[in-house]
Structure formats: C-alpha cells, structure tokens
Amino acid sequence: MGLFPCDFFKFLVKRPLYTTGFIIVVAFIILGCIAPYILTKPEDAWGVTYDLNKAFQPPSPEYPFGTDAYGRDMLNRVILGSRYSLIIAVCVVGLSLIIGVIVGLVAGYLAGIIGTVLMRLTDMFLAYPPLLLAVAFASVLGRGVLTAIIALAISWWPWYARLMYISVNSVKSALYVEAAKVIGLSKFTIMTKYILPNSLIPVVTQAMLDMGSAILEASALSFLGVGVPPPIPEWGRLISEGWVYVSKAYWITFFPGLVLLVTVVGFNLLGDAVKEYMNPRLRSIVAKR
C-alpha cells in the first residue's frame, strides 16, 4: 500500500477500460471546479435568460446541446450543472462518512448495550430502500441544495456505519490494541489513536467509490421535484424540466442524461479498478491468463 498511487497508475495503464474511467472522473472533477469560469453564456447557465425567440433550438454549431423552453443554451447549463453534482456528491458522501464512522467506531468498540442500540438504529435506517428515505425527508424539509444534501446524507450514513462496525471488529482484537489496554490508556484514546486509523481505509475507499451513486441519487431526487429547486441547472433538474417537452425537444432531456450516464460509468469503472487492485485474489486470476 505504500506505493499506492504509483503502483495503481501502472496497474491502470495496462487496462484501457479502467483508464477511461479514471479520465472521466478526473475530467468531471476538473469541470466541476472550473465550471463557472469557462461559461460562454453565464446568464443562460444561471437561468436568468428569458428569450422565447431562442426557445427550443435543436442542436446546432451555435447551440451544441440545443436550447430549453426559455431559450437558454443547454451546453452552458449542463457545464454548470457538473458543479452542483460535484458539490452535492462530495457533501453527501463526506457528511455520511463522518456520521457513519463515528457510529460504527463507537458501536464496534464499546459493544454492549450502546453498540447494540446503535447498530439496531442503523438497521432501522437501512430498512428503507435507498432513495425513499431521502425523498421522505426532502419532501418535508422543502427544496434546496442544502436540504437535498441533508436528506441524502440521512439515508446514506447507515451503510458506512455498518462497514465501519465490521472493520472495527476485525481490528479491535489486534495485539497493539491489547497492549494499549494493558498500559492503561483511556477508551477514547484507544479508539481515536489506535482503532480509527487502522479501520478507516475500507470505509473511505468505499465512500470514494460511492460518489457516482451519490450523483445519481441526487439527480433522481431533483427529477422527482423534491431536490434542487429551479433555476439551478443540476442534471436531474434539467431532465425533469425537459420531461414535459420530450416529444418536441428531445435534446433538453437527452444531453444532461447522457453526461450523467458517462459520469456515473466513469466512477463505476474506477471503482472496479480499485476493487481489482486491492483484491489480490482477483488480480492473481488476471495474472494467470
């Protein structure tokens, strides 16, 4: 693991499919960061424009992705949308990771009644199908970027709590933990200094790979009208706006969805790459052939 990045790149280069995934993800992150500075028609992207003469223009050299019902350039809106998708995904995954790691760590190390209660609580949240709990919360909290993040994180953290719990359980009987106990360190010190750093890697890896799903779920939330409000050009929002006009202007839904699909495929490919890289058994099978 020491040479992770270098080794990993060598591993990637040999596999064109995984390299593609990696490039897509990097491109998406860069696009999300620089989006507001490369817009050619910022007023279209932010949704201020209202020009019915330019409405429903099909894709053309001037408007590669066409224009929407208010005459806004779709390409600009999709580019700016990447920023919202990136922000939402990072915040949802980050927030869930923090909650999940704390719950999993405490439940795993303290065990006993506290541990059981925390894990049963986690099970209760997991009883909801993935998106539905977020939908329920978002419908009551109201629309907005922040509420969408909170609603998604509420339904997302239990997965990390469970993963962390398993990871902590495999670490807590290690010799160095026993040693720390013997010399009389406090439970808090043992948890934060010894168990946390040694059980974090699987959870954090999983969280990074989940970014694609987070983007997908955020867009589904917006599509259902309980996520990000208009005129924010989040991709799910754009698809939902074009839904009504799908018979006369396919491009309003088609291009945001295509970009969304490519992004998610990129994350999933990268996820597969990391899994294959980290799983020696899979790698040895590959090497044999």
Binding site: G236, V246, L260, N268
Partner: peptide, 12 residues
Amino acid sequence: VASIPVFWLGLV
C-alpha cells in the same frame, strides 16, 4: 446498464 439513470432511460 448498472449506471444508467432510470428516469432518463425511460424518457429516451
């Protein structure tokens, strides 16, 4: 197929 946004595929 596992990455496709379901609502988008439906519309397409």
